[in-house]
Deep mutational scan, measured.
Amino acid sequence: MSIQHFRVALIPFFAAFCLPVFAHPETLVKVKDAEDQLGARVGYIELDLNSGKILESFRPEERFPMMSTFKVLLCGAVLSRVDAGQEQLGRRIHYSQNDLVEYSPVTEKHLTDGMTVRELCSAAITMSDNTAANLLLTTIGGPKELTAFLHNMGDHVTRLDRWEPELNEAIPNDERDTTMPAAMATTLRKLLTGELLTLASRQQLIDWMEADKVAGPLLRSALPAGWFIADKSGAGERGSRGIIAALGPDGKPSRIVVIYTTGSQATMDERNRQIAEIGASLIKHW
């Protein structure tokens, strides 16, 4: 067993022997301040990774656009098919120029040779490549099948209805392509620590998230040296922004954090800054 596999296998073990965790309302004060600064709703939840206990939450059962955070769930569904012998990570998928959609920095470079399922998941999570996500959605049967996968996990809230990039439209009061912070946090925890996926697939999923290259201005910008984070960000229309993450000190994750916002007129930089400040408060009061 590799060191990384050992780390993920012992996530519940280490967490069980940690000192009790206590909620700190100071972080919620910052979440509410972010709402004021952005002029928009902000949803927040913080779960203990081992027990699933909610440590703090704000608007945990209000719907927010998922945006690209759905790509972690998508690759979880792909990995479940791999575990069941219905898919192979090494299978190569070929596609054409007509398949390319807006923001496809990886797939646009491989029109000639195609990409493997493993490479597509890596591109979808680490670079948020939209064509990679659409190609992977095709392998599982489309958005409705991802929703069905989530329902089978016990998540009857999260739903995907459309493809990239239309799913980022974020129309107010439109339930399409949305989740709730509580539902997303619980589902992410199941994917990373539950028995739904094999140990190898859980490790692969967290490795992809740990290698995320496009979430630097968010929670990662607030992390002290030595902290662990595996995350996936999302951005959408109407001032929408979000991030889902597993993080913790001492090089291992111990909490799940989900943050979503929508309806702001603020710039992307300002949305990023507010999420980073929430992260800084979380870490300060850990």
Rank of each mutant, 00 (worst) to 15 (best):
E26T: 01
T27M: 10
L28D: 05
V29H: 04
V29P: 09
K30M: 15
K30V: 15
K30H: 15
V31A: 01
V31M: 01
D33I: 06
D33K: 03
A34G: 09
A34C: 01
L38F: 08
G39F: 02
G39R: 14
A40D: 02
A40C: 01
R41Q: 15
G43A: 08
Y44D: 11
E46R: 04
E46Y: 09
L47Y: 01
L47T: 04
D48M: 00
D48I: 00
D48L: 02
L49K: 13
L49P: 14
N50K: 13
N50Y: 08
K53M: 02
I54E: 06
I54V: 04
L55G: 04
L55I: 07
E56T: 04
F58N: 13
F58G: 14
R59N: 00
R59S: 09
P60D: 04
P60T: 07
E62A: 14
R63T: 11
R63S: 02
R63Y: 04
P65Q: 03
M66G: 05
M66R: 09
M66A: 10
M67W: 08
S68Y: 02
T69M: 11
F70Q: 05
V72P: 09
C75D: 10
G76M: 06
A77R: 10
A77Q: 09
L79P: 04
S80I: 13
R81P: 06
V82R: 10
V82P: 03
E87H: 12
Q88K: 14
Q88E: 13
G90L: 06
G90R: 10
G90P: 10
R91E: 09
R92F: 00
R92M: 01
H94A: 09
H94I: 11
Y95F: 05
S96P: 06
Q97W: 05
Q97Y: 06
N98W: 05
D99Q: 14
D99L: 13
E102G: 12
V106M: 09
V106L: 11
E108P: 09
K109C: 13
K109Q: 12
H110V: 15
L111G: 03
D113Q: 03
G114Q: 05
M115Y: 00
M115V: 00
V117R: 03
R118F: 11
E119L: 08
E119D: 11
E119C: 14
L120Q: 00
L120P: 01
C121S: 06
S122F: 02
S122Y: 12
S122C: 15
A124S: 08
A124D: 01
I125C: 10
M127W: 03
M127P: 03
M127D: 15
D129F: 15
N130F: 03
T131R: 14
A132C: 11
A132F: 14
N134I: 07
L135Q: 12
L136H: 00
L137W: 02
T138C: 13
T138K: 15
T139A: 03
T139R: 04
I140F: 15
I140P: 11
G141Y: 00
G142Q: 09
P143D: 01
K144S: 07
E145Q: 05
L146F: 00
A148K: 09
F149K: 15
F149N: 10
L150D: 00
L150C: 10
H151G: 08
H151K: 02
N152V: 11
M153D: 12
G154D: 10
D155V: 14
D155M: 14
H156G: 04
V157T: 03
T158K: 10
T158E: 00
D161N: 08
R162P: 11
R162F: 14
W163R: 08
W163C: 07
P165N: 01
E166F: 06
N168A: 12
P172T: 05
D174M: 02
E175I: 05
T178V: 06
T178L: 12
M180L: 02
M180W: 03
P181K: 12
A182I: 11
A183L: 13
A183P: 10
A183S: 09
A183K: 07
A183M: 09
M184R: 06
T187F: 04
L188E: 05
L188K: 02
R189V: 08
K190V: 15
L192V: 07
T193C: 10
T193R: 04
T193N: 00
L196P: 08
L196E: 05
A200V: 07
S201Q: 08
S201G: 12
R202A: 08
Q203P: 12
Q204W: 11
Q204Y: 15
D207C: 10
D207Y: 03
W208L: 07
W208Q: 04
E210Y: 15
E210K: 13
E210M: 10
A211P: 05
D212K: 01
K213M: 05
V214I: 11
A215R: 09
A215L: 03
G216Y: 09
P217L: 06
P217N: 06
L218Y: 07
R220T: 09
A222T: 11
L223V: 05
P224N: 01
P224R: 07
A225I: 00
A225L: 00
G226D: 12
W227G: 01
F228I: 05
G234L: 08
G234K: 03
G236I: 14
E237P: 14
G239I: 03
S240F: 04
R241V: 11
G242K: 08
G242R: 05
I243K: 03
I243Q: 00
I243S: 09
L247I: 13
L247G: 01
G248V: 03
P249N: 06
D250Y: 07
G251K: 12
S254H: 00
R255I: 00
I256P: 12
V258R: 05
T261S: 02
T262Q: 13
S264G: 05
A266R: 15
A266L: 15
T267M: 02
M268Y: 05
D269L: 13
R271W: 04
R273Y: 14
A276R: 04
A276L: 04
E277H: 14
E277R: 14
I278D: 14
I278W: 15
G279R: 06
G279Y: 00
A280D: 05
A280W: 00
L282W: 04
I283K: 11
